[in-house]
Design a protein around this nucleic acid. Sequence first.
DNA 1: CCCCAGGGAATTC
DNA 2: GAATTCCATGGG
Length: 256
Amino acid sequence: MEPRTRATPLTRQLESLYRRLLDAYGPQGWWPTPSRAGARGFTERGYHPGEYGGPRAPRERFEIIVGAILTQNTAWTNVEKALTRLREAGIFRPADVLAVPTSRLAGLIRASGYFNQKARKLKGVAALFSADRALAPRAAPTRDELLAQWGVGPETADSILLYAFRVPVFVVDAYTRRLIERVGLDVPTDHYDEIQQAFHGSLSPRHELYNEFHALIVAHAKVHCRAKPVCEGCPVSRCRYRDSHRGNGPRDSARA
DNA sequence: CCCCAGGGAATTC
DNA sequence: GAATTCCATGGG
């Protein structure tokens, strides 16, 4: 299933990319949970860069799971508003989500958009993680268990595995594809699993590395590699894309 | 006014 | 499989 990790040209490209991003933006310490405010190690970003200790506390873990649902195609600032509403309503655990009527749940998460769909999704994951599963510490669910949930696709499943349970799976999102295209990495960008395999086959399977790499890609996408690119001061040297993007590397047609 | 945001499901061909 | 459409708020 897992290809051997070996040094390929792609390995060097990805490691170089990672180092450039880390140098430019610093450790991100994901997952960013608003409830971290006030906790030891709290930073102005609201989370703990550099902490990759033991298993997550159950409530923090569930907050990550909820956030992974709410952030689907949605700006994180709006997710924070919804998470804060949930916390103020005393909703911390799967059982709390199950106890609230779907209509009220939808109202609480209104700011995160798609609230009717997402309320249903939260009910589903709450059921998955409730009952015997709530007994911490619990081993991570399988990827297939997560994917079987309505509203949980590949990215959400992998985000939960990586950030809630520290399983070394690389999370692929729209930013990842955009960066691959603009930097000109020799990685196909059409299928989720293909992209993920490329990373898994080229990087050592360390959850700390996958955690930081994905978080750094998001940070980079918000500052420089936006939909409308801001190339001034871009830390990725081969980032020679133009407004029209596509292509851009030294050689564009080199994919065979 | 427009576009964008850490997707996923359902439909259609 | 590939291409659309829907879901919906909030910020720039």
